[in-house]
Simulated scan of single mutants.
Amino acid sequence: MKIKAIMVFFFSTTTPFRIALGIGLSNVYKGNSLTTLVVVGLLNACSAGLLNYMALVDLLAADFMGPKLQGDIRIQIWAYLPVLLGAGGVSLMAMWA
Rank of each mutant, 00 (worst) to 15 (best):
A55H: 05
M93E: 01
V28R: 07
Y53D: 02
G31Y: 01
R74M: 11
A20Y: 10
Y53C: 03
L56D: 05
I73D: 07
L59M: 09
V8P: 02
F64Y: 13
K30L: 10
T36E: 09
I75S: 09
A45N: 03
L60K: 12
V40I: 10
A5L: 00
Q76Y: 10
M54G: 00
A61Y: 12
Y80M: 15
A61W: 07
K30W: 00
L59Y: 10
A97D: 04
M95Q: 13
D72E: 10
L21T: 00
V8L: 05
I73R: 08
G41W: 01
W96H: 03
Q70A: 15
G22F: 08
L21Y: 02
I73E: 08
I3F: 08
F17G: 05
M54Y: 07
N44I: 00
G89K: 10
F10R: 03
V8R: 01
L85F: 15
L59I: 13
A45W: 03
G86A: 14
I6F: 04
A97W: 02
L56R: 03
I6T: 01
A79K: 11
C46N: 10
G49S: 10
L43Q: 05
S33W: 00
T35H: 05
I77M: 15
F11R: 02
P16Y: 02
L59H: 11
L50A: 11
V57S: 10
M54F: 06
L84H: 12
M54I: 05
S33Q: 02
A79C: 13
